[in-house]
Each structure stands twice: as structure tokens, then as C-alpha cells.
Design a protein around this nucleic acid. Structure first.
Lengths: 159, 159
DNA sequence: GGTTATTCCGAGTTCTTTACTTGGTTTTTA
DNA sequence: TAAAAACCAAGTAAAGAACTCGGAATAACC
């Protein structure tokens, strides 16, 4: 599983659609300004998202983008997979046979971990996030980082 | 949270230490050959890991690396944070005040998600992975991808 | 004490990806 | 017909990933 800034852009933009899609289509120009992402880059990201039917574009004036399906049917994994190519990590798999099993073992372990992360991200939908984020919708309560090291918010949710 | 190939290299290498650390220190040369990563690149990664006390280096002939602490006390998040810089995503946080709260909302949501992923990866230790992977230690049972789209192994663990 | 295997260190180089730019074309509303 | 939007494709700049090179320090072994 790959989780880069590109994926974050996509997730954040999709969140925007989820939040404001009820008020009509959301234009890329709006997202571009709100999130500080270049318009053309957004277009590229949305081309990927459209390809997977995660968003639906409406052309012409007054147009913009809607979610392709309800927010509770779109997982974070869906979004990330649409824009971030799922790269194959193992070098032994496929072509080459694994040498002495040892190499293969750690790769299996990684694959397991990878699957778990994917399963985890598949279990979180846009609707989940919005529902949860609504708790603090009043005001702007960003937590300041202490020393910039980890920036993990304590107790955001019990695991 | 950032999860790139760099982090994978580190996790896979650490898994190698976990698996074979009992038989004496593991050299980077061995890992380099087994995993197909260049030696100097590994050195750089291990410099990061050493900085966080995740590994302990032994110099001289017969030397190599041990885990810095027991495998059940090292989480995947520890490893990834050591090598992959934790980049701050939000542009409004810190310096600039959030504009009209809207911008801030999606960023809060992203932060929440980010925290969750972190919490999740913090809950998985090297020992966990080895224990779980041991189930298939016999032979080399890699699952072939069906169409290269998602490569998710079904039923790896019930969520 | 010298040789060798290893970690340690830093300054580069190359390649890929990210992120952006430019300049268009379609579509649709008003 | 004009304007606002999605669409599209090619190119560019910056960043990061991955690697290379050349060495230094440390410790084991002969």
C-alpha cells in the first residue's frame, strides 16, 4: 500500500465533495483555492477518480463534480488506489522463484501487513470521516504539534 | 502518515533481523543480497534506525545488526517514522490561521485519518508479524495476483 | 601488528515521481 | 454567442528515492 501526498490530496478533495456536494456540484477551482492545489493537477487526479467512477463530472457553467456514489460506499482505500498506482513490492514473486524460502518469508510478512493496511483503509468510508469530524465542526480546533516529531493526536479514537 | 517503498525496505529489513537475530548479528551485506537493495542505501536507512535506537550495530568482522529492543516492543509505525519523515500536510496549521473554518475541517478530517493509521500501525509489532507469518513458514506460498489491480489477499485476517 | 570484515560517514549522481504549467477542446448554461 | 466549467495532452521544474563512490573507524583474527 502506498500512501503519499498525492493520495492525501485526493482524499482531502473527496472529503470536500462529501461535505459540500449537497449544495450542488463542487468545482475544481473551488477545491484548488481552498486546498491550495493547482487546478491542472487536480484535473489529473480527478481524471483518475473519474476513471474508477468515484466522481461524476458535470460540464458547463454551474457544473463541477459530485461523488460517484454515496459517501458511505467510498472507502479511503478506493480513493488512494485510484490515484496512487498499487506498486508490486516483491522482487521474487512472479518471474523469479524464491530462493531458499528465506527471501520469500519476509516478503510474505510484508504482504500480510500490506493486506491489513488495505483492509483497514477499506473499512473507513468518507461518510465515517465526516460523521466523526462533525464532532468538532464548531470552530477550528487544530492541535498544535509539540515538537514536530510525530504529531499524533492523543485519544482521537480508542483502538 | 507516509508509507512508501523506503518504509517497506526498512520494515522488510527489520523483519529479517527479527527472524535471524537469534543466530548472531545480521550483516547489511546479507540483507542487501537477500532483499535486492543496494548496500549503501541500506546503510543510510540503518543510520536512521540506529538514531532511533531501533537497531544496534556491532562493528568489526563477525559484526552486523541486532534489533535495538525485543521484537514485541518495536511497532511498524516506529520503523516507518524513523526512515520516512513525517511530513506535515496541512498548509493552514501553524503559521496561517484557517480561513472560514471550511479549509480547516477537511484538514481535521485528514488528521483524524492520519492518526488512525498511525494508531493502527503502532499496534502491530515485528513479533506479531513473525508469529502470524509463521503459519505459512513451510514452503513458499505466494498468492499470485489475479489481474494486477488490487492484489489483496482475501481473508488474510478478519477485520 | 597487520589484514580483513564490518559498521559508520558524507558528498555526490541518476532516475522516477510529484506537482505544476501551458495551451488548447469540448460541453452546456444563460 | 459568450462564458464557465469539465476535459485533454504535452512539456517542465522540483523533490525525493535509490544508488554510487570513496573513504574512515572499529574490532576480530592470524
Amino acid at each position: 500500500m502506498r500512501l503519499s501526498t498525492k493520495g492525501r490530496y485526493a482524499v482531502t478533495a473527496m472529503l470536500d465533495l462529501t461535505l459540500h456536494g449537497g449544495e450542488g456540484p463542487v468545482t475544481l477551482a473551488e477545491i484548488s483555492e481552498t486546498q491550495g492545489i493547482s487546478l491542472s493537477y487536480l484535473e489529473q487526479l480527478f481524471a483518475c477518480l473519474r476513471g474508477k467512477q468515484l466522481v461524476r463530472g458535470v460540464r458547463g457553467p454551474g457544473g463541477g463534480y459530485y461523488l460517484g456514489r454515496p459517501g458511505d460506499e467510498i472507502s479511503i482505500a478506493d480513493i488512494i488506489c485510484a490515484v496512487d498506482e498499487w506498486v508490486e513490492f516483491t522482487r521474487c514473486g512472479g518471474n523469479q522463484d524464491c530462493q531458499e524460502g528465506k527471501r520469500c518469508l519476509t516478503h510474505n510478512l510484508w504482504d500480510d501487513l500490506s493486506s491489513e493496511i488495505y483492509t483497514f483503509l477499506s473499512s473507513i468510508t468518507l461518510a465515517d470521516l465526516v460523521e466523526r469530524g462533525g464532532l468538532r465542526e464548531t470552530g477550528c480546533v487544530r492541535n498544535k504539534k509539540d515538537d514536530g516529531e510525530l504529531s499524533v493526536r492523543e485519544g482521537s479514537r480508542a483502538a
